Simulated scan of single mutants.
Amino acid sequence: MTRQQLIKSIYTIMENSLAMQTLSSFHEDARLNEDLYMDSIMVLQLILHIELDIGISIPDEMLVPKDFQTVGTLVSFLEKLQQAE
């Protein structure tokens, strides 16, 4: 998947699966906690949907908070995972 496809997929997951109300603030630099108001449970749900809907396996030992600061850092993390597969 390209970077833009990953961003669109994350948006779609947040809109359809998580039913988020804060998507007007969604952009690559949007912070997951502060701008999109995602708590830790929502981030875990997002990870689950990324694995199930997009098909990118995310090993538990690779979950590091810095990769989940913004939409952009999450996409960069997913790009690295794709390259490793």
Rank of each mutant, 00 (worst) to 15 (best):
A30I: 08
K8V: 06
S25R: 12
V75H: 05
L23G: 10
S9A: 11
E34G: 03
E85D: 15
T22E: 09
R31P: 02
V71G: 02
A19D: 08
L18K: 01
M14N: 11
T22A: 10
L36T: 13
Q45D: 10
E61N: 10
Q21H: 08
T70H: 04
L81I: 12
I58S: 00
F77V: 01
D35A: 15
Q5H: 14
V75D: 04
M1T: 02
L36Q: 03
Y37W: 14
Y11I: 13
I58T: 00
L44R: 12
G72C: 13
L48P: 02
E51I: 01
E79H: 03
T2D: 12
I50P: 04
D35Q: 08
I47D: 00
F68A: 06
T12W: 00
Y11N: 09
Q83G: 02
V64Y: 02
D60W: 00
M14Q: 07
L74R: 07
E34P: 05
Q69T: 08
D67P: 01
I54A: 02
T2H: 12
R31G: 05
G55D: 12
I7L: 12
L44A: 10
Q4D: 08
F26S: 07
K8I: 13
E85S: 13
S9H: 05
K8A: 07
L78D: 01
I50N: 00
E28R: 02
F77S: 02
E51D: 14
L23S: 10
S25P: 09
I56M: 13
V64A: 09
L74K: 06
E15H: 05
L63S: 06
L32I: 14
D35M: 14
K80V: 05
E34Q: 12
A19T: 03
I50Q: 00
T70W: 03
I54W: 02
L78T: 03
L23Q: 07
I13H: 14
D67W: 07
L52Y: 06
E79N: 04
L18P: 07
M14V: 04
Q45A: 13
I58K: 00
A19H: 13
S9E: 04
L6K: 01
A19L: 14
P59V: 01
K80M: 13
L81N: 09
V64K: 06
I58G: 00
M1H: 05
I10P: 07
T70C: 04
D60V: 00
T73I: 01
M42R: 03
Q45W: 06
D35F: 13
K8F: 12
D35S: 12
G55V: 04
M42C: 04
L48S: 13
D53N: 11
S57W: 02
G72T: 05
L23R: 08
T22H: 14
L52K: 09
T73H: 01
D35R: 15
E15I: 00
F68V: 04
I41H: 12
L74Q: 06
A19S: 12
F77H: 05
H49A: 11
S25D: 06
I7A: 03
D35P: 14
V75Y: 04
R31Q: 14
Q69K: 10
R3D: 09
R3T: 14
I10S: 05
T70S: 15
V75I: 15
F68T: 06
Y37G: 03
A19W: 11
V64N: 06
Q4G: 07
N33C: 15
I47G: 02
T70A: 05
L63T: 09
V64R: 07
